[in-house]
Design a protein around this nucleic acid. Structure first.
Length: 657
RNA sequence: GCUGUUGUAGCUCAGUGGUAGAGCACUCCCUUGGUAAGGGAGAGGUCGAGAGUUCAAUCCUCUCCAACAGCACCA
């Protein structure tokens, strides 16, 4: 029995069935065998020692092949586990997968690791890699594996064996004396991991990602084929850190946080200017199709009981009473009424919809609010502007008929993409989140909503011309309905959900909202929740990182600083500032008794986009000498021309069209 | 919320069981200097909060608060 093997160059050869990749490579040349770390059979990466059972295309992968990177990292995770068990016998191993920029391994150990342990672990890892033991695979029975792990005291591994689906074989990989349950594949030997690896950080992580389970200690690491690639990656991390919005927020004097207000922002004048620019921009984008409203910040608990939030969202809500009632909870004379600080705008908007009788002719009603909401977020979840407890949503609710729903979802999508494009985000991820376990509403309602949204999602992907990736997040929907999530990526590679479109068949029913149909009958509207920036705070955080503080002129809090060279030009500098304001530009004079080079340095570090230097010459000729952020060039122009050019440059993107 | 780390001047950080230091920033004086730090003087801190151990705590112990890195949760 022979099989036909096709090589990448198209050549075909016959081999006996179940020949291994290793034998084929070795048969071609010893040097090929030496540099090959794994193979791809019909595009699927496999152990080189795997037998080939039928006709197939084969590719031999060397270390530098992009597909080998995962193997290097995965093998490195095994090396990490072996090193840890050699150094600290009795430490239990669990899982060690490859992740986006490296790998991790979770261990169960009484005393968690600290970064001080890293040098010792890395040294041991180098020893293990230098030993260059071969990876060999064995198939074991479940009982054999469980007995083995039980004898070693590896309770977590026993659990893992039980979790493997019955139709899958159980593979054990051996590297020298060390052996681990693993799906594979692996490279031919441990030495192929190389030396371009680094342990990055330690952290706690729940066993199997469930907060009810014990906390394990996780070691993160990364590995590359070459040292230069590792160095480049580490450098990139440093660069990303410089863009961190928390750092830039401090350096550029945009906002701060303090202990008394965890998760709530103190906006400084400059940050607030940007915030207002962003709101103004969004407001202009809504002018055509939406009506803007404003609903109360606190509403009686009973309203939240009706909406379902009190039941389903309580742990994330703030409740308020009068301070007297709070301090004297037993006093029958006190007003003990409980209000909730709104965590969402929707119940308020339903009240606005219900006020006055609505006709089918009024639909769709698109109701927008820059609504300030408060949510009690877990303390560990807070993260600068990205995750806060009080934030402003660019929220809107659309009340429409079921027939209008699809068109409305698409209209929202158009606006979303247009807004993101204005800020330079044109590749993004849209995901449909489906029904969670904890939910309200009938299964029929969920079926209908998910059905329509699945169609819309397909359309979004089709019409994006490949720029938008879509997917499904099963079980990730809100408790009241399925949703689309639009995700942008920050400078440090974290993904943040910004936009969201959520269909809600539930809230109108709970509040008894209706409109009068063409037939004169009461009909229940469909409600769509949608936000584009999501949280204005988060969106600004993402913009800060995306631009690295070098904002386009229209967003920059301080657009121009006018710096006199000597105090002789002070009066002219003030005149220039006035002219800037008359041109609608945000400007300030820096009249301090400092040298021009000192001022240039300071305002450059503060990332002011434009510096006007004015001396005796400029004052006499009514000119300004312009220096732009990021350039050392100087250009002298008449004040009138300079302002005209900047005025044009400072037009927001939506007003250029 | 969980695990770990951290908390000293506006910022970045030293430091010690006997009640604190540097650089930058700040104030004042000198300097009027043409594009990334001119010189001098001065002011500024209940050492995150509370309790305990001690003759004595910023330092040791405990509790709490906050931040950071993950996890879990989420806009």
């Amino acid at each position: 029995m022979t099989i036909t093997v096709t090589f990448p160059d198209g050549a075909q050869r016959q081999f006996p069935q179940n020949i291994t990749g290793k034998d084929i490579a070795g048969g071609i040349s010893p040097s090929l065998l030496k540099r090959t770390v794994a193979m791809a059979i019909n595009g699927e990466v496999r152990d080189l020692a795997d037998p080939i059972s039928s006709d197939a295309k084969i590719e031999f992968l060397n270390r530098e092949d992009p597909r080998s990177l995962e193997l290097i990292r995965h093998d490195c995770a095994h090396v990490l586990a072996e090193a840890v068990q050699e150094l600290w016998p009795g430490t239990q191993v669990t899982i060690g997968p490859v992740i986006e920029n490296g790998f991790y391994y979770d261990f169960a150990r009484e005393t968690p690791f600290t970064p001080e342990d890293f040098p010792a672990i890395e040294k041991k890892m180098r020893e293990i890699i230098a030993r260059d033991a071969a990876f060999t695979k064995e198939e074991w029975s479940r009982d054999q594996a469980k007995d083995f792990f039980r004898a070693k005291g590896e309770a977590f591994k026993v659990e893992l064996v039980d979790a493997i689906p019955p139709d899958q074989t159980l593979k054990m990989y051996k590297q020298g004396q060390w052996i681990d349950l693993c799906r594979g594949p692996h490279m031919t030997s441990v030495g192929k991991v190389g030396t371009a690896f680094k342990l990055m950080k330690v952290a706690g992580a729940y066993w199997r990602g469930d907060s009810n389970n014990p906390m394990l200690t996780r070691i993160y690491g990364t590995a590359f084929a070459k040292q230069e690639e590792l160095d480049a990656y580490l450098h990139q991390l440093e660069e990303a850190e410089k863009r961190d919005h928390r750092r830039l927020g401090r350096e550029m004097d945009l906002f701060h946080f303090q202990d008394e207000g965890p998760g709530t922002v103190f906006w400084h004048s400059k940050g607030w200017t940007m915030f207002q620019q962003l709101i103004s921009y969004m407001r202009r984008r809504l002018r055509r199709d939406y009506e803007e409203v404003n609903a109360p910040q606190i509403l009686d608990k009973s309203l939240w009981e009706t909406s379902g939030h009190w039941g389903w969202y309580q742990e994330n809500m703030f409740a308020v009473k009068s301070a007297y009632a709070f301090m004297n909870p037993q006093d029958p004379e006190a007003d003990q009424k409980v209000f909730a600080l709104k965590p969402m705008n929707c119940p308020g908007h339903v009240q606005l919809f219900k006020h006055g009788l609505k006709s089918y002719r009024d639909l769709p009603i698109r109701m927008a609010e820059f609504g300030v909401v408060h949510r009690y977020e877990a303390s560990g979840a807070l993260h600068g502007l990205m995750r806060v407890r009080g934030f402003t949503q660019d929220d809107a609710h659309i009340f429409c008929t079921e027939e209008q729903l699809e068109a409305e979802c698409l209209k929202i999508n158009d606006l979303m993409l247009s807004v993101y494009r204005d800020f330079g985000f044109d590749s993004l991820v849209v995901k449909l989140s489906t029904r969670p376990e904890k939910r309200v509403g009938s299964d029929e309602a969920w079926d209908r909503a998910e059905d329509i949204m699945t169609r819309v999602l397909a359309k979004i992907e089709r019409e994006s011309g490949g720029k938008i990736r879509t997917g499904i997040n099963p079980g990730e929907g809100a408790f009241y309905g399925p949703k689309f999530e639009y995700t942008l990526r920050d400078a440090i590679g974290r993904d943040w959900q910004c936009g969201t479109t959520q269909v809600d068949f539930n809230l109108p029913e709970r509040f008894g909202a209706f409109y009068i149909g063409a037939d004169g009958e009461k009909k229940q509207p469909v409600m769509v929740h949608r936000a584009i920036c999501g949280s204005m705070e988060r969106f600004l955080g993402i913009l800060i990182e995306n631009y690295g503080g070098h904002f386009p002129l229209w967003l920059a809090p301080e657009q121009i600083v006018v710096c006199p060279i000597t105090s002789e030009a002070d009066a002219y500098a003030e005149e220039v500032v006035e002219a800037c304001f008359a041109a609608g530009l945000r400007a300030r004079a820096d009249l301090r008794n400092e040298k021009i080079s000192y001022k240039v340095r300071e305002h450059s570090l503060a990332k002011v986009p434009v510096i006007f230097a004015v001396g005796k010459r400029e004052a006499e000729e009514k000119t300004v000498t312009i220096r732009r952020l990021g350039s050392q060039a100087q250009e002298t122009k008449s004040l009138v021309d300079a302002l005209a050019a900047l005025e044009t440059e400072a037009i927001p993107p939506d007003q250029r069209r």
